[in-house]
């Protein structure tokens, strides 16, 4: 008994030594900045006016300004549209792709890796790739459209298509992620299920809807949520393809916060925008964890 206690004490000591450095570093490089961000969001801090960084005379000023700032409200809306459509397409197409590649074949297995390419590319390179596609002067897309006598509008400068252009690029980039997740989930479906169904005379669609889909639904939801969280980070695409325009059609919250802080030097106000964004991310993250635990409980 005392031996076990000794082992436990030793284990605890080890845990402390193993965890402490990480926690200290995390606190220093993530916790402190977060605290600083909250504090700064309570000031009217402007870079050119250093004194304003400690001006707490009207701490909620920034937050009060937010609802009346049409650009901020618009940016949330743009973000919502981008996230919704992006995630939807990524989940749907990723699933279809996974179903297509869910087969036993050397070739398919080999091809699988190549489907991952868009995801591992640096996002800025993805943005460059789509810049090439969307620039009429050099784009094969416009050339092809010209051959077919279709008058293609300039996608990235058109009100109707600019956001779509970004959604397409974003979907292209992250489709492999959902594909990979769904494929992994598909491979855990015991084959007996579908074998039994086949024996019962079920057709492919019935098997999909009654066996496969219920099985992979949780993974669809989880990968969708992961993508939802990450979609808030979309920066290089907006930065390079549209710069938030035309007007504010593609100005997502992240980009607006960037402009505020690093173009207009309104650090305080930008911090407030960022805090709101952070809260939204925390809420969704909470959802992910909750979903994950529910799955564990169900399994």
């Amino acid at each position: 008994m005392s031996g076990k206690g000794l082992v436990d004490a030793e284990r605890r000591r080890f845990n402390v030594f193993a965890l402490a450095p990480s926690l200290i570093v995390l606190f220093a490089i993530a916790g402190l900045p977060a605290i600083y961000l909250v504090v700064t969001s309570l000031t009217p801090f402007q870079l050119v006016n250093p004194g304003s960084s400690t001006d707490f005379s009207s701490p909620l000023r920034n937050y009060r300004l937010l609802p009346d700032d049409p650009r901020f409200v618009n940016s949330l809306w743009v973000q919502a549209k981008l996230s919704f459509w992006g995630v939807l397409f990524q989940v749907l197409l990723g699933m279809l792709l996974a179903l297509l590649l869910h087969t036993q074949s050397r070739v398919a297995e080999f091809a699988r890796t190549f489907f991952l390419i868009p995801m591992v590319l640096p996002p800025i390179v993805v943005a460059i790739i789509w810049k090439l596609i969307y620039t009429p002067d050099i784009s094969p897309l416009y050339y092809a459209a010209g051959l077919l006598n279709i008058a293609m509008p300039s996608l990235t400068s058109s009100v109707d298509f600019a956001l779509t252009a970004i959604i397409i690029a974003d979907t292209w980039e992250w489709l492999p992620f959902t594909f990979l997740m769904v494929l992994a989930a598909l491979q855990t479906i015991p084959d007996e299920f579908s074998e039994a169904a086949l024996v019962d005379g079920a057709n492919r669609f019935q098997i999909f809807f009654y066996i496969t889909l219920p099985f992979i639904t949780p993974i669809l939801v989880i990968s969708g949520m992961f993508r939802l969280i990450d979609s808030v980070k979309a920066f290089p695409l907006v930065f390079l393809l549209t710069g938030g325009g035309p007007g504010s059609v593609t100005e997502v919250t992240n980009y607006y916060a960037y402009l505020l802080a690093f173009d207009f030097n309104e650090i305080g106000y930008s911090s407030a925008v960022t805090i709101v964004m952070l809260l939204l991310v925390v809420a969704v993250s909470f959802g992910v964890v909750w979903m994950g635990r529910r799955r564990e409980a169900m399994a």
Binding site: P44, Q46, N49, S52, L65, D68, D69, P70, R71, S157, S158, V159, G245, P246, G247, V249, F264, E266, Y269
Partner: peptide, 29 residues
Amino acid sequence: EQVATGQLPAQAAMNAAQEQAIANMRRAG
């Protein structure tokens, strides 16, 4: 850009712009 892309008529766009320019300047101190 809003006017040139047909999102808003000039009058409405410029009224909104005026309001926002004032708000942004005030916010910047």
